[in-house]
């Protein structure tokens, strides 16, 4: 089985898109989180190799979630999947410990490339 990935996005649509792309490329999507809370919870529970993280989400945004996950596990490999025009937030996410980012809408090979670059 490939690397274990946790997908975080508040839209079911984006989660489905990501899941399909990743699974086609040999990743194992171990869970989907709809907000930061769930992401932190699922991360603790499942210890995935990689995490994709949306930024703007209800309840707990991606940046807070990144901080919490990084505090828990400084080795966590988190890739931000952000929408256009969120420059400052993406920078904050990177400063909080995210390894890299891609921008929605993305080409399927970009997210795969990002995950490969970050997590091998």
């Amino acid at each position: 089985m490939g690397k274990k990935v946790l997908i975080t996005d508040d839209t079911a649509f984006m989660r489905m898109t990501l899941r399909n792309v990743l699974e086609k490329n040999g990743y194992e999507v171990v869970a989907e989180a709809e907000d930061g809370f769930q992401a932190v919870e699922k991360y603790q529970e499942l210890k995935p190799d990689l995490v994709t993280m949306d930024i703007t989400m209800p309840n707990m945004d991606g940046i807070t979630a990144i901080k919490k996950i990084m505090a828990e596990d400084p080795q966590a490999k988190i890739v931000v999947v952000s929408a256009m025009g969120q420059k400052a937030l993406v920078i904050e996410a990177l400063n909080s410990g995210a390894k890299d980012f891609i921008v929605k809408p993305f080409q399927p090979d970009r997210i795969v490339e990002a995950l490969q670059k970050v997590g091998g």
Partner: peptide, 28 residues
Amino acid sequence: FRAAHSLKGMAGTMGYELITDLTHEMET
């Protein structure tokens, strides 16, 4: 803002260019 933002992301990924454009302007 969040709703417009999410819409933009979804439309963009689906390749609905016009919806993406419009939601982008709304978001801004």
